[in-house]
Amino acid sequence: MIKIKQFTIIKPDDWHVHFRNGKILKTIVKYTSNFYERAMVMPNLSSPIITIKSAKKYKKNILNALKKNSTFTPLMTCYLTIDTDPDDIEYAFYEKIFFAAKLYPKNSTSYSKFGIKKIKTITNVLERMQKIGMPLLVHGEIVDKNMDIFDREKFFIDKILIKLRKDFPELKIVLEHISTKEAVDYIQSVKKNLGATITPHHLMYNRNDMLSNGIRPHLYCLPILKSKTHQEALRKAISSGNKKFFLGTDSAPHYYYNKESHCGSAGIFNSLSSLSIYAEIFEKMHALNHFESFCSRNGALFYSLPENKNTITFIRKSWKIPDKIFVGEKIIIPFLAGKMVKWTIE
């Protein structure tokens, strides 16, 4: 079988990324803006993006970190709390301040302590979002000290998401960074208004990679890596060509000492290598014919946005991922640090 040497696709969008703020933002935003035309920016900062004012300030910080000739567009999201005002949501949506709103179950991931404990507390907000066509992005995990961490996503679907869709059938919902076969099966079973993002790390690795032969803290993320069965279900989903699945890196940088500690932070920084990794996986699945749709078409279609005009070209040329990224004197360890990947982006 002859291997292709290069191919060109519509410039992709990253429908789930964490930029943080301050020095980290200024250092890492280029790794997304260089390779992606748009990105859905997550609002769970240490001081979360809850208000219109904070969203405007955060977007300005992102734009100020870009190159002068950059065409990159950050799409801002609102962090939902029990105090979120439906009128503010509607105004911000129509004024294109907030593109979507994010539902974090309380304490489900990094900086989610202001999240939602019971869905009924934000019913008025969800009703308004459904009415105006504003997308709801969901971190799909139930958090319960008595529940196995590997079952959180499945139980969220069974106990919350199914009812949420029944109560708000016209609300456009994205189940973010899915990690289970149950999530794949549920997404495929729904006819409309439900999509899902899939990360490169959930496609590339499973929990054995994280926990066998020593614990690898730089593979720790939420949702946590699952078994090989679930990894294979995700791979089959992207290689099927189903338009409900699209690219979302969930790239989330932490300084190395917050990862390599007695209580390591959840998050994987993969922005600089994500597209190369996706390309490798699609090629391995003999599914490069679906690669452009996953990266550049499916998300835009789901969000009713135009496809991007620019393109990028992949060349079969190996390159080494840096061992570390410096933020001043501090260090972030990137995903697959020091390893070789097969595809270079021109």
Rank of each mutant, 00 (worst) to 15 (best):
T109N: 06
E141W: 05
R128H: 06
E141D: 11
N124C: 13
I142V: 15
Y111V: 07
G140Q: 04
K102L: 07
Y104L: 04
I119C: 05
F114A: 13
T109G: 03
P135T: 05
L137H: 05
L137A: 07
L126F: 04
V125E: 00
I116F: 01
S110C: 09
G140I: 02
S112H: 01
N107G: 08
M134D: 06
P105F: 00
S112A: 09
Y111E: 14
T109F: 02
S112Y: 02
V143C: 10
K118L: 10
R128C: 11
I132E: 07
I142D: 15
K118H: 13
I119L: 13
S110H: 11
Y104N: 04
K131I: 12
V138G: 03
S112V: 01
K113V: 04
F114E: 15
N124Q: 14
H139W: 04
G140S: 03
K131L: 15
S110V: 10
M129Q: 03
K118A: 11
M134S: 06
K106P: 11
K118N: 14
F114Y: 12
I122D: 01
I122W: 01
T109H: 02
P105W: 00
P105E: 01
K118M: 09
K131H: 14
L126D: 01
L137Q: 02
I132Q: 11
E127D: 14
G133W: 13
E127V: 15
K113M: 06
H139T: 09
E141I: 09
K102W: 07
K106G: 12
L103E: 03
K120F: 12
K106I: 08
Y104D: 06
I119V: 03
P105D: 01
K120H: 12
A100H: 07
L136K: 03
H139N: 09
K131A: 14
T109I: 04
G115N: 07
F114K: 13
